[in-house]
């Protein structure tokens, strides 16, 4: 069963200099219990997809086209008050703890209780009882719920945020760079925590990160984004073994592999394009070593090449990658 299905989503930000075409024709589907990683360079529109799903767009952001089917129900035309019951109860988010995702003037436990009491008919005592259970689930002592965010370390804040995301037992969680800006050891323990919870609760998850090694560790399926487009989407094993899109290939060879043989890293030459004025045709053609005239003129279709292995490249399958 599909929990989430995004079809041909287009989302722009209007600025003084013109429209930033942050998400352009993106399609994705996530089945129940699946964890999908969304990877790409910073500024490629990953986070924009995350906030579009919950319709948490800033004032200047707007969805122009497309469907966001959550359990078969389109969220795009839904009014604010109906969206509110989808938020957290249906889809919750794990924010980056290094950002101020917790309100500094309230006790962390109270902030979690606020979410529970909003969506469920429970008494205050039951809500606090739930918080204690959640704290234990994420490996923290329940008494810490009585503390304020500034009394937490970075890792603890991240655990609390995970606990908060689980509070209403959502159908799906969007994790937006949950381990970025944490030091490596803490990062590792948080990833382990997420994997453990995911397995235990059979969680459906969209995991957004710029770091493909983190994604590889946590996700069964990977969507690669470039300049507002999803360019390739498949299960992680296939993606690593036989990528179809030259950008995926470039991305893979610019990260060191711990297990494989030592290879020279090949960073992708050039800069990511400005989304105010993206390149015509395939947005990657300006940096693609295989680019032809066709790539400049025509937008490649996002096609299914093998069973659930999609790519948007005119020459997918014809190139010798990896």
């Amino acid at each position: 069963m599909k929990i989430l299905e995004v079809n041909n989503l287009r989302m722009y930000f209007s600025t003084k200099k013109g429209d930033v075409k942050a998400v352009e024709g993106v399609s994705l589907e996530i089945g129940k219990g699946e964890s999908v990683g969304l990877v790409g360079e910073s500024g490629c529109g990953k986070t924009s997809i995350g906030i579009s799903i919950l319709k948490l767009l800033p004032d200047n952001g707007r969805i122009l086209e497309g469907e966001i089917l959550f359990k078969g129900d389109d969220l795009v035309p839904k009014p604010e008050d109906e969206m509110r019951s989808v938020r957290w109860n249906g889809i919750s988010m794990i924010f980056q703890a290094a950002m101020n995702a917790l309100n500094p003037v309230y006790k962390v436990g109270d902030q979690i209780v606020e979410a529970i009491m909003l969506h469920e008919e429970v008494s205050k005592e039951e809500a606090y009882e739930r918080v204690a259970q959640l704290y234990e689930l994420v490996g923290m002592s329940p008494e810490r719920a009585e503390n304020y965010p500034h009394e937490y370390s970075g890792g603890m804040k991240q655990r609390a945020i995970i606990a908060m995301a689980l509070a209403c037992d959502p159908d799906m969680i969007i994790a937006d760079e949950p381990t970025t800006a944490l030091d490596v050891i803490v990062q590792d323990s948080i990833i382990k925590e997420i994997k453990k919870i995911q397995a235990k609760l059979d969680m459906t998850m969209l995991y957004i990160s710029h770091d493909i090694s983190v994604i590889a560790e946590t996700c069964e399926r990977i969507a690669v984004m470039y300049a507002g487009n999803v360019v390739e989407y498949s299960d992680s094993v296939t993606l690593f073994a036989s990528p179809l899109h030259p950008y995926t290939n470039g991305l893979l060879s610019s990260f060191p592999s711990i297990k494989g043989p030592l290879k020279k890293l090949n960073p992708i030459p050039g800069e990511p394009p400005n989304l105010l004025n993206p390149p015509t045709g395939c947005r990657f053609h300006t940096r693609c070593p295989f680019a032809q005239r066709l790539c400049k003129e025509q937008v490649p279709e996002f096609r299914e090449f093998q069973e659930r292995h999609y790519a948007a490249c005119h020459f997918a399958g014809e190139l010798s990658l990896r």
Binding site: S85, S92, M93, Q96, N100, A115
Partner: peptide, 22 residues
């Protein structure tokens, strides 16, 4: 512009609660 306002919105809190309480 703070991130906890985004958290409050993501939680599905009503506008008035976000404005006043957060």
């Amino acid at each position: 512009r703070e991130d906890y306002i985004m958290t409050a919105r993501a939680k599905g809190l009503p506008e008035k609660t976000i404005r006043d309480r957060h």
